[in-house]
Computed example of a mutant assay.
Amino acid sequence: MSLALSPAQRDALEGWLAHLAALDGAAANTVTAYRTDVTGFLAFLAQHHGAQQGLGILTRLSQSDLRAWLAHERGRGVAARSAARALSAVKSFVRWLSDREGFDATAVLSARSPKFQRKLPRPLAEDAAKAMIETVGTQSSKDWINARDMAVVTLLYGCGLRISEALSLTGDALPLPEVLRIRGKGGKERLVPVLPAARAAVARYARLAPYPPEPGQPLFRGARGGALSPRAIAKVMEQARMQLGLPATATPHAMRHSFATHLLSAGGDLRAIQELLGHASLSTTQAYTAVDTARLMEVYEKAHPRS
């Protein structure tokens, strides 16, 4: 597909991607996805207009060009969510290019995104989250593995960590401080308070583990001493949720969702929760307000059944 790009377009695309990676701190996966999205758009333009247009076509983009592209994407079976992400990438690219080349990008920037139903996070109820933590600590015949699994899941729920963030901790993190510095997506750092229960759970694991924690080495180890895999935690939570009768949505990431939702329910500030989770955009965190409202409506419906 990249063969459809003119040299000027290819140079501009690489310049924008380098800008995203260097100055905006975009993660490698994000850069790859944006490259694919914008390359597809530029390839469509070449086909739509019958020839390579260089940067000139980008300075003259119209609403009809964008509508034609989105219709083409729908015809290929691209879901509305994916099309919306691609349009966001195109807007970002054209905005960056317009700043460099000095043209008016209003036609592109004002384009409406395809509508789609956002999937709301599926948190666990507070008692279910606590039961999950306790139950994962009973799945193995080895005490240290039980302590390990309990410590990891406690970090997910008690600190709102992603599973990758919890498993990236090394022996240098011990003993866990009251505030932990976490490097999240795109290499962005944030400070996360660590509850006493989480510090105690990790300390217990460290005492029982047959592999002494070492600086620079993974804190959480697998049964044979290698780095613990995310799949191992997903599997032990799968076993626990079957025992507890919880839905398939009770995954490691659901513990992070539960952390945010329960904080919000307790009166937590949305902006503070955004910082704790490491969300780049407040709109991502705002999904939890919808969850909280949905749960409130469930309670309302039960308390006031329709006649």
Results as ranks from 00 to 15, higher is better:
Ser2Glu: 15
Ser6Pro: 14
Pro7Val: 12
Arg10Met: 08
Ala12Asn: 09
Trp16Gly: 02
His19Pro: 01
Leu20Glu: 14
Leu20Asn: 11
Leu23Phe: 15
Ala26Leu: 13
Asn29Tyr: 07
Thr30Trp: 12
Val31Met: 10
Val31Phe: 07
Thr32Cys: 09
Ala33Lys: 06
Thr36Val: 10
Asp37Tyr: 12
Val38Tyr: 12
Val38Ala: 04
Phe44Gly: 05
Leu45Asn: 05
His49Glu: 13
Gln53Lys: 09
Gly56Pro: 04
Ile57Lys: 05
Ser64Gln: 14
Asp65Met: 00
Trp69Lys: 00
Ala71Ser: 13
His72Gly: 02
Arg74Glu: 13
Gly75Tyr: 09
Gly77Phe: 10
Ala79Met: 05
Arg81Asp: 03
Ala84His: 09
Leu87His: 07
Ala89Glu: 07
Ser92Lys: 05
Phe93Gly: 07
Val94Gln: 07
Asp99Asn: 10
Gly102Arg: 14
Asp104Gln: 05
Ala105Ile: 07
Ser110Trp: 01
Ala111Asp: 00
Arg112His: 06
Ser113His: 10
Arg118Val: 13
Arg122Glu: 15
Arg122Lys: 15
Glu126Asn: 08
Asp127Met: 02
Asp127His: 13
Ala129Gly: 13
Thr135Ile: 06
Val136Ser: 09
Ser140Asp: 15
Ile145Gln: 14
Asp149Thr: 09
Asp149Lys: 10
Asp149Arg: 08
Asp149Asn: 15
Met150Trp: 08
Met150Leu: 14
Ala151Gly: 08
Val152Trp: 01
Tyr157Arg: 00
Tyr157Asp: 00
Gly158Ser: 04
Gly158His: 04
Gly160Ile: 01
Ala166Tyr: 04
Leu167Glu: 00
Ser168Arg: 05
Gly171Trp: 08
Asp172Asn: 14
Leu174Pro: 04
Pro177Asn: 03
Val179Cys: 02
Leu180Phe: 01
Arg181Met: 15
Arg181Asp: 07
Gly184Pro: 07
Lys188Ile: 08
Arg190Ile: 05
Val192Met: 03
Ala197Ile: 13
Ala197Phe: 13
Arg199Lys: 14
Ala201Leu: 07
Arg204Gly: 08
Tyr205Pro: 09
Pro210Glu: 05
Pro210Thr: 03
Leu219Pro: 03
Phe220Pro: 04
Phe220Met: 00
Arg221His: 05
Ala223Ser: 06
Arg224Ala: 01
Ser229Ala: 10
Lys235Thr: 11
Lys235His: 13
Arg241Asp: 06
Met242Lys: 15
Leu244Ser: 03
Ala248Trp: 01
Pro252Ile: 01
His253Gln: 02
His257Glu: 00
His257Trp: 04
Ala260Pro: 00
Ala260Asn: 00
His262Ser: 03
Arg271Gln: 07
Ala272Phe: 11
Glu275Phe: 00
His279Pro: 07
Ala280Leu: 10
Ala280Gln: 10
Thr289Glu: 11
Glu298Gly: 06
Val299Pro: 11
Val299Asn: 06
Tyr300Pro: 09
Ser307Leu: 11
Ser307Trp: 04
